[in-house]
Amino acid sequence: MLKNIQEWVMVFLIIGAIILIGNWVGYDILPTAAIPGILTLIAICLLGLIIHRLLPFKLPSIAYIGILGFVLTIPGVPGSTYIVQWTNEVTLLAITTPILAYAGISIGGSWADFAKLGWKTIVVGMCVLIGTFMGSAIIAEIVLRFQGII
């Protein structure tokens, strides 16, 4: 467990550094301004991963991480204003670019399988994604309008 935490920390520090650089180049936020934010996010991830290991429930670790970040920033929770202020300096798009860069490199490994898929699979696959996406959007739109929120 201790060994794992050490490795997680190293991996997060590397990814964090890449995010800080992307955040600087693409979104003009100096790394010095974004360091507290990225460290906070890393801390939340580590805590979530550790809780996931310790608790017996069969929830995925990202559920703990999401809930933790959420609870820590509810207005009124001690320190929440700092966490919000710090993490605001780390742009969402700066986080997504390295994720998808790693994803792209890992996708390469599936390319041979992908090339074997027929055109029918590709058509159906696109319909699956559009269907899921539009299905949720349409229901959300109807309910939000019905409630008068939008």
Binding site: V11, G48, G66, S80, I99
Partner: peptide
């Protein structure tokens, strides 16, 4: 592991 950072970002925006 990098997606967890995105999820943490989701979390702190949601609070």
């Amino acid at each position: 592991l990098s997606v967890t950072l995105l999820i943490a970002k989701f979390g702190v925006q949601a609070g």
